[in-house]
Design a protein around this nucleic acid. Structure first.
Lengths: 206, 206
DNA sequence: CACTAAAGCGGAGGCGCCTCCGTTTATTAC
DNA sequence: GTAATAAACGGAGGCGCCTCCGCTTTAGTG
């Protein structure tokens, strides 16, 4: 029972999928996604697929079998990154007081957006072409934020008269004037400012 | 004065441009646009640029000098086609009674939309990327339609209680269910139906 | 005409995309 | 263990993209 094959197979699968891939196939697929993430980050979304295959140590044919188009690959990478961002919410919530968790998560959100600079146009096309992708991921992100905000409101570390959508709205400034060199700094200050506002209210009303 | 060089140069230019191209360059450019229009129409917007150069009898380098990106070329072709469509309004107005001119122009509009089937996605991306292109061309088209409608209203061949935007609105049905085989026929019938409605009113209210 | 500078031409070459199919490997059955 | 077979691999090859630069043509000038 302990070494039952199907249990091992299921252990492998990140999300339940139709067919359990052969071990080598799963390995290559994972590798490709991982490498693609870093190549896209460093070279932009138009990076050479052949370079990705090369760096992953597989043939170009293997890449194409797993991801028939560039968009397929980009989508998987993008979903994985959103996933990781959202998962960080839970981890931060465990390790830190809830107001600190919220702040750190927002800073991480800024970092995440930063890596998407330059990918903006292609990503916008992808998101407008694939509306499921858009609603899935934006839903996930705002859910993660909601979780953090509600926890912080609940234990009184931030003021109680705001909710997640207010905070998201306040964060929307980080989408503007994207390509300027000061963008990163400004955005980090914006988050601090926002946190001060949130904490200030908490002290006052308690 | 009759053979003054600058006069000849200006004669060549379709629209006043910064630099009067050398004769051979102008010839090649015109040729490329013309060939590109038919190749795009027959192979779709992703047609090979090398084929276009080949068919135009120029080197690929020449194509790229005139049109640094595919989008540049597509844009010029698109503008030229919209131009031709709008110019047809004036010609039809001269040759036919104004209600007939209006009807024929609308049928031609249907034909024009028909050639854009399949190009839909790429064209939509281009139009959303390049907002000037969108506003320019849609402005031109509705202006042409307005001219025809107003003339027909003025001489009483169609009813007087409609304007160009009503007609455009009524035509919007031709954008829907685009890829079905009956689309063409349905759209032509829609135009006839619309014209009958417009003429009917004219008889009644006069 | 002849001459010259500037403008234009064109295609080789390097790279990326994607498909196709002969070879290799994991898995299953015995 | 071995055999059989389905799954997966990988890279050659064909095509398109785009740049670069040596060659050709044009448009002026005397």
């Amino acid at each position: 029972m302990a070494t039952e094959p199907s249990a091992i197979a299921e252990q492998k699968a990140e999300a339940a999928e139709a067919k359990p891939l052969r071990a080598d196939a799963q390995r290559n697929r994972d590798r490709l996604v991982e490498v693609a993430a870093s190549v896209f980050a460093e070279r932009g979304i138009d990076a050479s697929l052949e370079e990705i295959a090369r760096r992953a140590g597989v043939g170009i044919g293997t890449l194409y079998r797993h991801f028939p188009t560039r968009e397929h690959l980009v989508e998987v990478v993008y979903r994985r990154e959103v996933e990781a961002l959202c998962a960080a919410a839970g981890e931060l919530a465990q390790k830190h007081p809830s107001d600190v968790a919220l702040e750190q998560w927002m800073q991480r959100f800024v970092d995440y957006i930063a890596t998407k600079r330059g990918l903006a146009t292609s990503l916008r096309i992808l998101l407008s072409t694939n509306s499921t992708l858009f609603s899935d991921t934006s839903g996930r992100v705002s859910q993660a934020l909601r979780q953090l905000v509600e926890a912080a409101v609940a234990d009184g570390t931030i003021r109680g008269d705001v909710d997640a959508s207010d905070v998201l709205h306040a964060l929307s400034g980080i989408y503007s004037a994207p390509d300027t060199p000061e963008w990163r700094g400004r955005s980090r200050r914006l988050v601090k400012l926002l946190m001060d506002g949130l904490r200030f209210g908490a002290v006052k009303t308690r």
